[in-house]
Design a protein around this nucleic acid. Structure first.
Lengths: 339, 339
DNA sequence: CTGAAAGCGCTTACAG
DNA sequence: CTGAAAGCGCTTACAG
């Protein structure tokens, strides 16, 4: 019932090989033949059967995106879906489709993933860090399956990966604070074990150090990641013999607590005490005053991950291990130059 | 290089047809043969080529999910991705893959979508309301392509659709308020033109009416959907000769404004004025006090949409047009029974 | 219960 | 520049 390449060949008065060549832009086809085939295609509303094409070509032109897709994941981790959208954009622009999957807990993630790799449903895979597991690197490299791991996979991994540059984001924060004229800057982070928080803190300390400033230990605070704790820690900072002139909050939730404390102390923001936070999500739009933010474009992270993977498809030996996606400063009203 | 059905057949000493039948659980195969084939499969680590299977069977066992996937969509509309996760769960449980796509703006969405439908890359499609366009219904029904539209497609549509029951959510709100003993209940909604807000409002009014209460016009407020406007409208409500005992906020942002106004008036929540909001996302976790919420499980909406579609695949004539996914009340501290 | 054979709709050396 | 033919790896009537 559906129109095939044979119908087109008959209509155009050529062989199916020729139609196929026209479809695949072979240079050997004469302009006249090319036109006739295209007319026949248009006349018959022919669309190549995607299943047959990928079967005959031995390639799916499809990419797997592996990530955690649990209930309410979208609220806990919207960044991942922003990455996904960036991936999808790049793939679509390059004629690739995107298939979304997660790891089952029952039959063992390894077997499942190996099946997906071996059965040829996709030409490559993007793995979000939320879905990593110990044997993943071995599985991918042994099968020589083109992949990019989104997020640093830990030291010494042979996987290909890309990640955002959180250390640089910390440096940007330091630089902005110094440009405003704030020299006494405190940092309120998450738990001491949190990776991203640590990277940002180290970037910040390094950035300050580069300009000749050393941050005293009592200016560095760890929290249990709640508003209340951030508020409490801020009060402690403000009670120091030499309180900070500005505070860096590692995330939006902490910023809410910092603002609360500053209000309670009736300190003017930013004239008396300034602050800055990372990420504009999820609360920056409702924090008053509008916070200055060091933001990371994770959509772009997705775009770049997909580009890397497509490059690897053409050149499988390519080793990609890179920090990418630069942070961006969004000036708000919570910092301002001292004059 | 990769192991095929022929290798398995040779190893097991049977024909490829027999291997295929074992793979597809044909009942005619003798237990002994079946075992030998399975052993060969295990020994050779055979995995069927997914591309070949779908080509030979003439079905992809793949479902398209069509939705808006623009940059920062994940922050603006995380609900959609929660739906997506529900869809993915159901499809995976039933042996289907999920392909994610959006509509391009350049070559015309119709041509693009028709191409996807005709080229056989998927057996059916789920369309999120964010991606609807005028000729969509005609396109799908003319091609007889199995589909479910997530979200009401407007009156008189011949499409299959499912949606959340926002009217019922409004009724639940009314019922809860009355159960607490609040009779004078106001409603702060979005713009008058907002569909969801209107449905919830109508459900609320109907629910109150069913119990014999009629809400006066001045208790119904429309806003520009900002905190500030919600705060302003709340002040106006509180200045009425007979102020409301409780307020229903159509979304979290409005609830923030309402709380601000109640604080400014130094009214105790819920002893003097109670409130309730719809959706626990995005701010309910940071609203103080913890709000009572009428929540809708949109992950479940995805689950149900996928189930409907799979049912339609087996029975193409099935017409699905239904409100589903019941609202759930989550008791917080912003309402409490009067004693 | 099993197998030989045709076929799914394309692509791609190869020959001319 | 074009076409006949083999093949991609399965499935499925059909015959036995």
């Amino acid at each position: 019932m559906p129109v095939t390449i044979r119908d087109v060949a008959k209509e155009a008065g050529v062989s199916t090989s020729t139609v196929s060549k026209v479809l695949n832009n072979w240079s050997s086809i004469s302009p006249g033949t090319c036109d006739r085939v295209h007319e026949a295609i248009k006349k018959l509303h022919y669309t190549p059967n995607a299943r047959a094409v990928s079967f005959a070509k031995g390639a799916s032109h499809n990419i797997l995106f592996l990530s955690s897709l649990k209930k309410e994941e979208a609220y806990r981790n919207p960044h991942m879906f922003d990455i996904l959208c960036g991936v999808r954009r790049t793939l679509a622009d390059n004629g690739y489709t995107l298939m979304l999957t997660d790891l089952p807990d029952t039959p063992g993630p390894q077997e499942y993933l190996t099946g997906l790799i071996v059965n040829g449903i996709a030409d490559g895979i993007l793995i979000h860090g939320s879905c990593s597991f110990p044997q993943l690197a071995r599985l991918l490299t042994e099968n020589r399956f083109p992949h990019i791991h989104i997020g640093h996979p830990g030291p010494g991994s042979r996987m290909c990966w890309i990640d955002t540059n959180n250390g640089l984001a910390g440096q940007f924060a330091a630089q902005h604070m110094l440009e405003c004229g704030y020299e006494k800057v405190a940092f309120i982070g998450e738990r001491k074990t949190d990776h991203i928080s640590t990277q940002r803190l180290n970037g910040f300390l390094g950035g300050m150090y580069d300009y000749g400033y050393r941050i005293p230990d009592e200016y560095i605070r760890y929290t249990d990641s709640t508003r209340e704790d951030a508020c409490r820690q801020t009060h402690q900072l403000l009670s120091l013999p030499v309180p900070p002139r500005a505070i860096i909050c590692e995330n939006n939730m902490l910023a809410l607590g910092v603002v609360k404390a500053l209000r309670e102390k009736q300190l003017h923001i930013p004239d008396e005490t300034a602050f800055l936070t990372f990420d504009s999500y999820p609360y920056s739009s409702i924090i008053d005053p509008i916070p200055t933010v060091i933001d990371i474009d994770v959509y772009d992270l997705g775009v770049q991950a997909a580009e890397m993977l497509l490059r690897k498809l053409k050149n499988p030996s390519l080793l990609v291990q890179t920090y990418t996606t630069l942070p961006v400063l969004r000036q708000g009203q919570s910092t301002a130059p001292i004059h």
